[in-house]
Amino acid sequence: MPITLDRMTKGTKGRVVSIAGGRGAVLKLAAQGIAPGMTIEKVGHLRGGPILVKVGQNQVAIGKGLASKVIVRVVTE
């Protein structure tokens, strides 16, 4: 079942299904490797704030609002 990135449990991996945002958000996320089809790992969650994500070797912090627009399907290994 797809969930939003901010609700993903820390330490799990997911495959991005879609981005429910405007063109600007989609472009910015895409350039950091957060695009449909990509596998991402949630590595942290700061209180009241951003979510830390790893895409390959790239580590990115995503504000909570933006993270709630990233729809992922959790990958179970």
Binding site: G49, P50, N58, V60, A61, I62, G65
Partner: peptide, 9 residues
């Protein structure tokens, strides 16, 4: 609005 944070670490 408060723009969203997206930043490389």
């Amino acid at each position: 609005f408060i723009p969203a944070l997206l930043i490389e670490i």
